[in-house]
Amino acid sequence: MNIKRFFVGFLLVSLVLAGVVSYYASSSPDGLEKVAADKGIDSKEKDHSLKDSPLGDYGVKGVGDARLSGGLAGVIGVGVVLLAGGGLFWVMRRREPSSGPSRDAS
């Protein structure tokens, strides 16, 4: 498979998972949260210092429809992580050594 096509496909999978499939995710507490609540190790839990962030709790503030709000937050998250991570990795990457007096000018 062409590498560009592979990259586009990989991104589309992530966008669909975060933007669409995430709506159907289980809303039960996850393992840590459940254990914390059951055993009482969360009694001194503090609210998140950025809990009123515009994307807090994986929803876009001001968007009423839960499906749209969560999906939009997911798509934004995929984009932000791709830009932050991809940007970092691109800057860090090992530059290919120039292949010397190559005839290939393109």
Partner: peptide, 26 residues
Amino acid sequence: APLAGLTAAFVFAAQMLNFPVASGTS
């Protein structure tokens, strides 16, 4: 490098997908 950026994005997306594991727990 691009693959790593896409992998991070995929991990973010997949972390949104809580799956049920036991009664009332995901």
